Simulated scan of single mutants.
Amino acid sequence: MKNNQVISLREQVGLVLRELVEVAKLGPGKLLVVGTSTSEVVGERIGTSGALEVANELLAGIEEVRNEFGFLVTYQCCEHLNRALVMERTLLDELRLTEVAAVPYPKAGGSMASAAYRSMDDPCLAETVEAHAGIDIGETMIGMHLRPVAVPLRPSIRYIGEARVNTAYTRPKMIGGERAQYVLERSIQEENESHLCD
């Protein structure tokens, strides 16, 4: 069931993002990828009715939460720019990414990427990232920019505006077989006594 629009888009995205921040433990040094179809938010098919005013309201909500928790953020462009990512140049340099040459516009890049680009001090685009978590508003397919292993997190509200919303966080790959441990509970002496491996 869709939201009843009692709360603003800014509040809706803030609510969803705060839930993700808590579970994903997003904070300084952690990267969030945001994918958004403003067309879907206003109830139209993705890629048909982009709306900068909607993008700006969502951007304000995301930035409010980002400023509170200190995580890093990048915004995914639409398929016309191969889902490249808008970010501050300082982040591009910090992550040692390769810049790609494009400027997103609502009809080539998407309204959200366009609004984000224009809000930044020194914006640029990179082709790909490996984010710690993501929010997907309108089924824009952010999975290609998440680290393995992605874990879906269903937010308490399932729509932002008219667009379905999903979030995900990532965890390290678990390696090893049946003897593998993932929490340090015993001393090395106890471990050696219980399993002789060498």
Rank of each mutant, 00 (worst) to 15 (best):
H132G: 07
V100Y: 01
V54R: 13
P148L: 02
A150H: 01
N166C: 13
M112W: 13
G138H: 02
C124E: 00
G43A: 14
M87F: 09
I157K: 08
Y105M: 11
G47E: 13
Y105W: 02
G70D: 05
V73K: 09
S111K: 03
D122H: 11
T128F: 06
P152C: 10
R66I: 03
E79F: 00
Y117D: 00
E99I: 00
L72E: 11
E130Q: 08
G70T: 01
P123S: 03
T167S: 12
V165H: 06
H145W: 02
E64N: 13
H145N: 03
E53C: 08
E63I: 06
A163W: 12
E88I: 09
P155A: 02
C78N: 15
I160N: 07
I46Y: 13
A116K: 07
N67L: 14
E139W: 04
V151E: 05
V86S: 00
R118A: 12
T38W: 09
G70M: 04
V54D: 14
R154L: 13
E88G: 11
D136H: 06
L81M: 10
P104D: 01
M112V: 10
L72K: 04
G43H: 05
L85R: 13
A113R: 07
E88R: 09
T90K: 15
I46A: 15
A116V: 04
E139N: 10
F71R: 03
D122S: 08
A116S: 08
E40F: 15
I137F: 06
P104S: 07
H80F: 00
T140S: 06
C77K: 10
I62A: 10
V149N: 06
A131V: 06
V86Q: 01
L95N: 05
I137Y: 03
M141R: 13
L81Y: 03
R45D: 05
V54S: 13
V100W: 02
P148Y: 01
E162S: 14
D136Y: 04
I62M: 14
R96N: 12
C77S: 08
V65E: 06
F69E: 03
G143D: 05
A150N: 04
V103F: 00
M87R: 02
E94N: 11
E63S: 12
I62V: 15
T90V: 14
M87H: 05
M87W: 08
T48R: 09
E44M: 15
E79C: 02
L85S: 10
G61M: 12
L59F: 15
T167N: 04
G138T: 03
Y117A: 06
N166Q: 10
S39F: 09
F71W: 02
A150Y: 03
A108N: 10
E130L: 04
L97F: 07
V86I: 04
P123V: 07
D136N: 13
G43S: 09
L72F: 09
D121P: 01
G143W: 06
Y117Q: 01
R164K: 15
E127M: 11
T98P: 01
A60F: 09
L125N: 01
A126Q: 08
R147K: 14
E63C: 05
V103W: 00
P152H: 05
V86D: 00
A131R: 03
V41W: 12
A102W: 00
L81C: 11
M141P: 00
A150T: 02
G138V: 06
A116H: 10
T98V: 12
T48A: 09
D121M: 05
H132W: 08
L95V: 11
A51W: 11
